[in-house]
């Protein structure tokens, strides 16, 4: 990232950040900064809301209003912020544990409500902050300190969930390709409604080491080899897609946006009471 960009969008006095060497979260933050710049967000009118975890610390580095909340609850806090001041742009940052485990219910309902929020999940497939316990997105049979004999649950497809419950925009990106990530984040920020971007991030310190996946570079290579763009995926048969992760813009739909619908309700009620 250029110094000018960093100085404009980041609280440089707070650097260096807390993330480990090789962590993918910084790549995601970088892409987000570029996307914010491309969209031309007014930093005085932007609030970044996050939960608890390594990913959520990103909110503390961005040079706008920031709200670092409780574990899993970022979307619920963001709902209050957005409804109280609909003119503000609200971006929500969450880890996979934050969003899909403890905050799963809020995720479902925020998407269904279609409130104008952009929600970005930094998916490193583990609980990074608490040293690598398994999360809802940990692959089946992967190892974790809390799954020393292999994790038995199936992994959660968060994009599929978001689409099913009514998000207006759903995309998946991967840390190995920050350009594509920026592009998808720009579209998410441009959408008026609930937009969701899942980003594959890597955690070499906990997930990589315990599962013998090598260092950050090996994990990024894995991402490159195992991701398939959605356009190509459409032409592949299920057998070919086995074990692959589909990236790109996965879903886009027009639903009534909540703050707009609420404003309409208010004028309808006021009109009626005024009569």
């Amino acid at each position: 990232m250029s110094t000018a960009l960093a100085e404009k969008y980041l609280r440089v006095e707070r650097l260096p950040h807390i993330w480990c060497r090789g962590c993918g979260h910084g790549i995601v933050l970088g892409a987000l900064v570029r996307a914010m710049d491309e969209v031309g967000l007014d930093l005085d009118r932007t609030v970044v809301v996050s939960g608890i975890g390594c990913a959520s610390r990103a909110a503390g580095y961005l040079n706008c209003d920031g709200l670092h909340t409780t574990h899993g609850r970022a979307l619920a806090f963001a709902t209050g912020v957005k409804l109280a001041r609909p003119e503000l742009r609200v971006i929500v940052i969450a880890g996979d544990g934050d969003l899909a485990a403890i905050g799963g219910n809020h995720f479902i309902h925020a998407a269904r409500r279609n409130l104008d929020l952009t929600c970005i999940c930094f998916n490193n497939q583990v609980y990074g902050m608490t040293s690598g316990q398994h999360s809802p997105t940990s692959p089946r049979l992967s190892l974790a300190p809390t799954a020393p004999y292999g994790h038995l649950e199936r992994e959660f497809d968060l994009c599929e969930l978001a689409r099913a419950v009514g998000a207006g925009y759903v995309a998946r990106a991967a840390a190995y390709n920050p350009r594509a990530m920026t592009r998808l984040l720009v579209r998410a920020l441009d959408l008026r409604g609930f937009s969701f971007v899942e980003v594959l991030s890597q955690c070499p310190t906990y997930f990589g080491r315990r599962n013998r996946l090598g260092g950050a570079v090996d994990m990024l290579k894995w991402q490159k080899e195992h991701t398939v763009d959605v356009a190509r995926a459409r032409e592949m048969d299920p057998a070919e897609l086995e074990g692959k992760v589909v990236t790109g813009e996965l879903h886009r739909a027009e639903y009534p946006e909540y703050t707009a619908a609420y404003a309409e309700l208010v004028s309808r009620v006021k009109g009626e009471t005024g009569r």
Binding site: A76, A78, T79, V81, A84, N105, I108
Partner: peptide, 23 residues
Amino acid sequence: VYIQMEDEIASMAAVVGASLAGA
């Protein structure tokens, strides 16, 4: 603004978020 949230955890969170935004 009136909103029924998905649970009490969310309603308390939304209240605090709204307060921080001036409500």
